[in-house]
């Protein structure tokens, strides 16, 4: 069997109509290619910025602020005091949320504090239910947080006592400035009360949960108490 002759790179050798001497691509093919490329460039020139515009907030980092909620002595260590903080600006009441605050009580709060946060004196618990985000209410008679939507129940420390929630209630960092207690960034906890970057409700943090539901650039855990 005779060896197949390799095809020439030159259009003229291959007998393509409209071929010119020394060309490897016909002019028609070249023009079609440039027209398509121009169209693709023009389309991506508006499509890519528009997509980035819509997807930008996913990657945007936001400054976490500290908000004063009252004097240090306003908070007992055996019950919670509800305080209102702002979690989103410029939308009035819609952007506000309740935080339940009490002093740390060594008899109840037996979990060790993480490195760098050893002198934390307060516990600030978010009212966001960890099932799907409804607002929980602290019922002092039952000493439990109860969610009105789907029956989630949390104990005094915010750990799940019953119902569908997948992890304990979120908490907020606290600090004392000029005798005022300030509430800072949110953090999430697993069932051991280990601290994680804030996750949305419904995302478990035990076991592989922290990897299945990665932390997002838009909201992160506090790195050090001085931030």
């Amino acid at each position: 069997m005779p060896k197949k002759q390799a095809k020439s790179n030159y259009t003229a050798d291959r007998g393509i109509p409209g071929a010119f001497e020394g060309e490897t691509v016909t002019r028609r093919r070249f023009m079609v290619g440039s027209a398509h490329a121009t169209g693709a460039i023009a389309t991506s020139a508006f499509l890519l910025p528009a997509l980035g515009f819509a997807l930008g907030p996913i990657f945007e980092e936001h400054e976490q602020r500290w908000q004063a909620v009252g004097g240090v002595d306003d908070f007992p260590n055996d019950s919670y005091v509800p305080k209102t903080i702002t979690i989103a600006d410029n939308i009035g009441q819609t952007g506000k949320s309740t935080v339940y605050i009490r002093k740390r009580n060594p008899q109840i709060d037996t979990e060790p504090l993480p490195k760098g946060f050893e002198d934390e004196q307060f516990v600030a618990i978010s009212t966001r239910c960890m099932h799907l985000g409804c607002p929980v209410k602290f019922v002092s008679a039952a000493e439990r947080f109860i969610c009105p939507c789907h029956g989630g129940v949390y104990n005094f420390r915010g750990e799940v006592d019953g119902g569908p929630p997948v992890r304990p209630l979120d908490r907020f960092y606290t600090r004392v400035r000029n005798g005022q207690l300030e509430v800072g960034p949110r953090f999430s906890v697993n069932s051991e009360l280990d601290r994680f970057s804030p996750r949305d409700p419904g995302e478990p943090l035990d076991g592989v949960g922290q990897y299945l539901y990665p932390s997002r650039p838009s909201i992160r855990k506090l790195d050090s108490p001085e931030d």
Binding site: A54, L55, P57, I58, E60, H62, I87, A88, D89, N90, I91, T94, G95, P198, R199, D200, P201, G202, E203, L212, Y213, P214, S215, R216, S218, I219
Partner: peptide, 23 residues
């Protein structure tokens, strides 16, 4: 948000951020 891996980003996309905000 409960969808594994993409869920957290999806809910951020829907809200336009980590919290329900002005946009």
């Amino acid at each position: 948000g409960t969808g594994p891996l993409v869920g957290p980003y999806l809910s951020d996309f829907l809200r336009g951020g980590a919290e329900f905000g002005a946009t």
